[in-house]
């Protein structure tokens, strides 16, 4: 994973992770056969329906910035998981894990976000007790 943090992007594993909540508008745009972890600096957290978008800048080895967007669950669902609109603030260093889009633009789904110093953000998944 260390290389991921330096290079900004890496393919962490070939995992099939279902994200049913994203099915609201389909998940065809994401390549579910690939899971990536991307490190960057938050520029905005768009905490709005139907799905939260995390906008962050990723710096490559030459110091050039690329703006990435990561899509997550609905704000309603995330709020019930402990998120709020101030969970991520501009300037926060984060590592986002999820599936990249198929068309190659710098965008991805977000199934997990941790701060670069190792602190966790609240779980983004479906409520743990949803299988009751």
């Amino acid at each position: 994973m260390g290389n991921c943090f330096r290079g900004g992007l890496c393919v962490a594993a070939l995992l099939i992770v279902s994200m049913p909540a994203l099915a609201h508008h389909g998940a065809a745009e994401y390549d579910n056969t690939k899971t990536v972890s991307v490190k960057g600096t938050v520029t905005a957290l768009r905490y709005t329906n139907p799905h939260v978008l995390i906008v962050f800048n990723v710096k490559n080895d030459k110091g050039e910035l690329t703006e990435w967007t990561a899509e997550s669950q609905s704000p309603n669902l995330l709020s019930r998981r402990g998120w709020s609109r101030s969970t991520l603030k501009p300037g926060d260093e984060i590592v986002v894990t999820g599936h990249p889009v198929k068309n190659g633009v710098p965008a991805m789904s977000a199934s997990k976000v941790v701060f670069a110093d190792g602190r966790d953000t609240p779980n983004m998944g479906l409520p743990a007790d949803s299988s009751k």
């Binding site: 745009e29 967007t69 899509e71 198929k102 068309n103 633009v105 965008a107």
Partner: peptide
């Protein structure tokens, strides 16, 4: 965002 990530 939808337009940005759409598959051609």
């Amino acid at each position: 965002y939808e337009k940005k990530v759409a598959i051609p």
